[in-house]
Amino acid sequence: MFSAQTLEKFAREVGKYPADQKQSAIMACLAHAQAEKGWLPAEAIEAVAAYLGMAPIAAWEVATFYNMYDLQPVGKYKITVCTNLPCALSGGYHAGEYLQQKLGIGYGETTADGKFTLKEGECMGACGDAPVFIVNNRSMCSHMHPEQIDKLLEECE
């Protein structure tokens, strides 16, 4: 189900916790699983649960509770836009509208070519840098005004 590298990462995460608390690694392992698969298919969740000795439904609870797990396939680039109030005051809503217009999709949608998925996010803890995006859960983009947005979209191969 998972590559050797991903399994190695699983083992490293499990090593952070007391021996009888393997379940603690579920969040990190699901994140690694998602990074490998591009999203989190149910089989991957079940495999992680088995790896950690958890009931699959317990892993499912975790995967559905935290909103950075993608339980549906997403585009190659998932752009999450913070529209919470502090960002909105500095253009968060408007950056989102601009993106939607450029990509021709709404929040929760993926472009026809499968390249971009757009999501509306909650506070990312970088309100001073508004508007803020996160690409693929990993890299944060600050001060996303039109020029920066254009540049970001160009850089996405």
Partner: peptide, 8 residues
């Protein structure tokens, strides 16, 4: 150790 959240 570091433990990360994932959106909550």
């Amino acid at each position: 150790f570091a433990h990360h959240g994932y959106g909550a």
